[in-house]
Computed example of a mutant assay.
Amino acid sequence: MRADTLGTMRAVARLIALVLACTACVAAHGASRALGRRSAWPRRFLAVVAAICGVRVERRGQPLDRDVLFVANHLSWLDIPIIAGATGTAFVAMDGLRSWPLIGWLAALNNTVFVDRGNRLGVHGQVGAVRAALARHQAIAIFPEGTTSDGVTLLPFKPALLEVVAPPPRAIRVQPLFLDYGAARHLAWVGDEPAPANAWRVLTRPGRFTVRLSCLNPFDPADLPDRKAVATEARRRILAASAHALAPV
């Protein structure tokens, strides 16, 4: 009973902190835009979200800041604030997210590219939306597994959206990212667990935990024949980083 009470108190405190951070950062973002300046506040807010949820981000390697398509493994909804806070990237997300209260609005502030993943006939339109974002020199991140994994297994990559860089519209590089939750892999959002239940597990969890974000060596997709080859190369590099992380000491 005491543990449940403490967990609820932690969740409430974190939710209050998230609301205060959101209010302050949205106000600062609005002020920056009103002055005609490029706003860094969406990135800062997402970094704060990760910290409030207990994440200590250990970044290894240097992420590119423009003309890059990040390709990452996917474990949790926390991946988004972790990666965005560390790199400043925007994401490709399912179109349904746009209608989520507050979340959809915040995603739009971070220049999220919304696509209808359920419409296989609309793949060319999805690719076009991502190409348009890259044409604005916006860094974009995708999760080609298409869903979350357990932090140990890397699922097959779906190469459809990688058509955006096969061939690339300009000198764009692909940079694989590897997320390792270490001892907190049990927080992975997999199976049929509802999103609110997983969020509650994260918010009630005591203490902090470290997530390692490895920014792997980028490569030029123009050196590869097609999108499947690009997917294979990105997955190969992430698998190699995963094998090293999971190897017994």
Results as ranks from 00 to 15, higher is better:
S149R: 01
G30W: 03
S99D: 14
Q138M: 13
A47I: 00
A50Y: 03
A40T: 08
A195T: 13
P42T: 10
L134K: 11
N110A: 15
H186E: 14
D223T: 15
G151T: 00
A24L: 13
L216V: 12
L64W: 11
L75Y: 01
R33N: 03
A247P: 00
G146N: 07
L239N: 13
S149T: 08
D192L: 02
V92P: 11
A34Y: 05
F219C: 08
R227L: 11
R66G: 07
A188Q: 10
P168Q: 12
A245C: 13
N198F: 01
L102D: 11
A17V: 01
S214A: 15
A84C: 11
H74I: 13
P81E: 03
G7W: 07
I142M: 08
V57C: 02
P156L: 06
R117H: 13
C22G: 04
R60C: 08
R208Y: 10
D95P: 00
R227Q: 12
G182S: 09
A40K: 01
T23E: 07
D150N: 12
V68Q: 10
P101C: 03
A24Y: 02
P248K: 03
A240E: 15
N217K: 12
F178T: 00
I238S: 09
Q126N: 15
S242G: 10
V230R: 08
R236A: 15
A93K: 04
L75Q: 14
L162Y: 10
V68H: 10
R2V: 04
W105R: 04
E145T: 05
H244K: 14
H29M: 04
A40W: 01
T8A: 15
N119T: 01
V249D: 13
P167I: 07
G118C: 06
P206T: 00
A229D: 14
G146K: 05
L69T: 11
R44F: 00
G85C: 08
A3W: 06
V19A: 14
W200C: 06
Q138L: 14
A184T: 04
I172T: 12
A234V: 12
W189S: 01
H137Y: 02
G88Y: 10
R2I: 09
T5K: 04
S214W: 12
A184E: 07
V55T: 07
F219A: 09
R33G: 05
V127F: 12
R60V: 10
T147S: 07
D220W: 11
P196G: 08
A13K: 07
C215T: 12
E58M: 03
R120N: 08
A184R: 04
L239Q: 14
I52Y: 01
A241D: 07
L216M: 12
E233A: 13
L46A: 07
W77G: 08
P221D: 10
L15K: 03
P218V: 14
T232L: 14
R117C: 12
R14P: 05
F143D: 06
R237E: 08
